[in-house]
């Protein structure tokens, strides 16, 4: 009994003095291995694969906004040479057709953007073109959203609202099989 009493007296606490050191060690490990980079990018939904060639001939010419990027990274928009920085505004005008011109899309739901590139096209150029086209739609969605709901468009909006806007201005981008020019060996 006397013995146990003596044992009781001895404090049985674990020395927590080294806790900070242990935590520091772990902290330094995570500091070193951390890469705080959120992966960002342009989100795309590819069309499902089908063996038949899609028939673009059926579409009315006025509803198709064709963009060609060749192996020299030049742009051909609706049959004429164009520059990258005018692409967005032209696409916007084409989709909305504010002046009801007969050569632009009948209405936004019928507008189709057709993108075609060579195998030798630079990826950077391709992505810039894609970015401009997406920017055109994003701006149109934003304008529409302000008109309909009075708030700027963002991905945080309720799904129903986003769907309503995208139903009015659907993003239709068809990519044709690239032609075999300028592929490097």
């Amino acid at each position: 009994m006397a013995k146990s009493k003596a044992r009781d007296k001895v404090s049985t606490e674990i020395n927590a003095g080294s806790m900070a050191d242990i935590a520091f060690l772990l902290l330094i490990f995570f500091l070193v291995t951390t890469t705080i980079d959120v992966d960002k990018g342009i989100r795309v939904k590819l069309p499902p694969w089908s063996d038949e060639e899609p028939d673009i001939q059926r579409l009315k010419e006025r509803n198709v906004f064709s963009v060609l990027v060749n192996a020299q990274n030049q742009l051909l928009v609706r049959g004429e040479l164009a520059k990258l920085d005018e692409l967005k505004d032209r696409a916007k005008e084409f989709i909305m057709n504010p002046n009801n011109r007969p050569d632009l899309a009948e209405k936004p739901t019928k507008a189709i953007i057709s993108l075609k590139n060579d195998r030798g096209t630079n990826y950077k150029t391709y992505l810039q073109v894609y970015n401009e086209l997406k920017a055109a739609y994003n701006e149109l969605w934003d304008e529409e959203c302000r008109k309909m709901y009075g708030v700027p468009y963002s991905e945080d909006l309720p799904l129903a609202m986003r769907k309503a806007i995208k139903k009015k201005i659907p993003f239709v981008l068809s990519e044709a099989e690239p032609t075999n020019y300028g592929e490097e060996q």
């Binding site: 992966d39 960002k40 990018g41 342009i42 989100r43 795309v44 939904k45 590819l46 069309p47 499902p48 694969w49 992505l127 894609y130 970015n131």
Partner: peptide, 11 residues
């Protein structure tokens, strides 16, 4: 059948 794609890019 993998259709969701993200072209990684820098801001």
């Amino acid at each position: 059948g993998q259709l969701l794609v993200n072209y990684s890019a820098r801001p």
